[in-house]
Design a protein around this nucleic acid. Structure first.
Lengths: 223, 223
DNA sequence: CAGCAATTAAAACGCTTGTTTGAAAAAATA
DNA sequence: TATTTTTTCAAACAAGCGTTTTAATTGCTG
């Protein structure tokens, strides 16, 4: 855990890595259209042509950045889900465990990225809301399999619930997760700064509870 | 309800109105940066210079459009909230009633806008997620008072709950609402087309129930 | 109908965008 | 060290952007 940081201090990151990092920060902050090749180059201390040299185009740069940031989250989700299944043996995991495996990995990644903690939250959220067609396509590719997996798992946990109800409530749960990630920066609107210093884990924990409650009560009421 | 449509058929809309409508559609679909004055002019069957003539600038055009679409929703929210309070006399309205007044007006407006039903849902959601500073400022101006009002009302309904918990759960509820509105178009990701034809009211109703469950259980557990 | 104001129209203006170019520098290989 | 490959750099390109300008057209009012 600690050993890696000593390397980072000495070793200057490769241009490629700096470009990816800059792209992630600026995409999270300003979205696809608000992100320019020049701003990326400036933020990454690189030449304007560097990004096109390393990635070919703006689209390819953003796509690669998204791949690098989202893939590990999805991998961790499946890992946690499998752990929960193993832990429960033949009985299905609880909704709480399932949603934990869905949401918790985001918190882990947020906590890992020390600089501008909430940048990753916005990045993940933006993946869903960016009105650019090629991002929508990529997102569908990355996420539709995960969604199918969770639907299947929730169906096993709630075999009495109609599939349609599972669909709807999973949709609501995912929407809540994304909405929260996207909106967290705006907590000040309601609290006037009171909650701003809250820690990542608290918010993730609350989110898991909230979503679980909404799902369980909703699905149970439908049967 | 029906009488107004007969006028619309005959009367050609003013250039100003057509520009606003086109702006709403394109903003919902492509966001602020993806919306160009030329695309607005084309969609509205107007000249490129018309928008600048009528509104002064792109920012002013978008701002005016947002004002016209969001103001009535907020007005209706307060109206429904007041009705609920009057209905309950001295006792506070239930969380269900409060969230109904918050969410239902969006459904009403969506149902009213016959053309491309979900455009307004996306528009409202985009108001929250657009990474353009002047939109953020406007949004804060429009919504912070509403947020304060609802926080106050929920505090009365749950006097035993710590204010901080009210804050958090209201935030989660609003985030869920916005996430759902933004994501509804993507229901196909999970359902492969099964839920796409669902009616507006069903989604609104599910959303209200989901949010209420999450809020009530969460706030009660905290005390 | 005349005259004036409001609106529409076409063209152009600077500016920023993503991308390309060709040469210089650095790194790797032998 | 010599040579070949990879990477960096400054400059320029065409295209698209919001906005402005100037003239033509429309609609209203006296």
């Amino acid at each position: 855990m600690i050993s890696s940081s000593s390397q980072i201090v000495k070793t200057k990151l490769s241009t490629r890595k700096r470009l990816i990092n800059a792209t992630a920060r600026l995409f999270a902050q300003h979205g696809y259209n608000g992100l320019t090749m020049r701003s990326v180059a400036l933020e990454a201390n690189a030449n304007l042509a560097a990004a096109n040299y390393h990635f070919g185009s703006k689209d390819a740069l953003v796509l690669e950045m998204l791949r690098e940031r989202i893939q590990p989250i999805n991998a961790r989700r499946i890992e946690l889900l499998d752990e929960a299944k193993a832990r429960n043996g033949k009985t299905a995991p609880s909704a709480r465990e399932i949603f934990h495996s869905l949401i918790f990995p985001i918190g882990e990644e947020i906590a890992r990225s020390s600089k501008s903690r909430w940048s990753l939250a916005q990045l993940v959220a933006r993946t869903f809301t960016e009105p650019v067609s090629f991002i929508e396509r990529m997102h569908q590719r990355f996420f539709s399999q995960i969604a199918k997996l969770y639907h299947q798992e929730l169906s096993l946990a709630y075999p009495h619930a109609p599939p349609k109800e599972i669909h709807w409530h999973l949709h609501l749960a995912v929407s809540s997760m994304l909405g929260s990630l996207a909106q967290h920066r705006r907590l000040g609107d309601f609290t006037e700064g009171e909650c701003n210093e809250e820690e990542v884990n608290e918010m993730i924990d609350r989110l898991i509870r909230f979503v679980t409650h909404g799902f369980v009560k909703g699905v149970n009421a439908s049967s």
